[in-house]
């Protein structure tokens, strides 16, 4: 059974040799190729090679086409990223310095052919040629409610969102939603299988239930309605979202939920209630310091909570650059060990 078949079995609730294991190694690819992060992310060939090498080395089930989150800002005009030695880069120049810049924001008509998408396109082509159909290829897309934080900074976006002016807020959301619709189309065209829909504003840890209902939910519907939810994964960054699962299934039709490490897995699974795949996520920041025994115990706890009844995936969150390789191996070996065998009751 290959990784793609394993994932499909988990989504459909069919028997498999083990649960799927997703490991979100990104920056670590630079270390594999002995490059600085800035060099590594300058070429799609490097990112593809890094992804293929790491998957081969550790044996998990997924590949990433994501370079870094700021790539979306580059597609919308950002020309400067600030690279670090040991972590993801920051957006170095806000596309929108003030709300008054919103009317001039241009959404590219064709993202697939856009020069700022060229390296991702190359990366995806290599991944598809080398591993397409065998390993799920993931893409990362930011929801319209969250994208403004990358374009103007979280402070300014939160202020515009909550205190207005509402006309500018809605104009920005409209443009961000249009961008999302075109971006998801580009990723599908380029061969991505798993479309991680990132939206911390889809969690009531970020916004109130009222704002979720009145703003987040309608904008998520606008984002997803044109292209549908095939392959789409609901993900709110590290923010918990167990309490909106029912609403998301009912109104958006998403079937895969990548929980926060702060979500209770049993509760999440109960709410998904056999209608989709629940992903139990380890708090991987703690992997930096944990002992082998602690890593194994936590992996076991997560899998024991999620595996009964099937339709479960084990996953990681941000996988900081400084996690020791030994702990990555211990985590993945434990996930294979505890996740082995018939997963359907």
């Amino acid at each position: 059974m290959n990784s793609m078949e394993r994932l499909v079995a988990a989504i459909q609730g069919k028997p498999a040799d083990r649960i799927p294991i997703f490991c979100n190694l990104l920056d670590q690819g630079a270390r594999e190729l002995n490059l600085s992060l800035e060099e590594y992310y300058s070429k799609g060939e490097y990112v593809a090679e890094g992804q293929l090498k790491m998957r081969e080395k550790y044996g998990y089930d997924n590949l990433w086409s994501l370079f870094y989150v700021g790539k979306e800002a580059e597609l919308l005009g950002c020309r400067r990223m600030i690279f670090a030695k040991d972590g993801p880069p920051n957006v170095g120049e806000m596309v929108l310095r003030r709300p008054e810049d919103i009317p001039a924001l241009q959404v590219p008509d064709d993202i697939y052919s856009h020069p700022a998408f060229e390296e991702q396109r190359k990366c995806l082509r290599i991944l598809r040629d080398e591993a397409g159909g065998k390993y799920p290829i993931c893409a990362y897309l930011t929801a319209s409610m969250t994208l403004p934080a990358i374009l103007m900074g979280m402070e300014k976006w939160m202020s515009l969102l909550l205190t207005g002016p509402t006309a500018l807020r809605d104009e920005l959301l409209h443009k961000c939603s249009l961008f999302f619709q075109r971006e998801i189309e580009a990723y599908r065209q380029a061969g991505a299988d798993v479309l991680v829909y990132s939206n911390p504003f889809g969690s009531t840890d970020f916004i109130t239930p009222k704002i979720f209902q009145e703003l987040s939910l309608p904008w998520m519907q606008k984002d997803l309605q044109p292209g549908g939810t095939a392959g789409v994964v609901y993900y709110c960054g590290s923010s918990p979202f167990n309490d909106v699962i029912e609403t998301v299934i009912e109104h958006l039709g998403i079937q895969v939920f990548y929980l926060s490490p702060m979500d209770d897995i049993r509760t999440g699974k109960r709410r998904v209630a056999g209608r989709g795949l629940t992903c139990g996520v380890i708090n991987d920041i703690l992997l930096i310091d944990w002992t082998r025994e602690q890593v194994r115990a936590e992996v076991r706890r997560i899998i024991e909570a999620g595996k009964p009844g099937g339709r479960f995936l084990f996953g990681t969150l941000v996988m900081p650059f400084t996690i020791p390789e030994d702990n990555i191996r211990v985590m993945l070996e434990a996930a294979c060990e505890f996740g082995e065998g018939e997963t359907v009751c």
Partner: peptide, 13 residues
């Protein structure tokens, strides 16, 4: 009791 980031922001603002 659940308090969201948005509520912190408005209270502080």
């Amino acid at each position: 009791r659940d308090i969201s980031l948005a509520q912190y922001f408005i209270a502080s603002q």
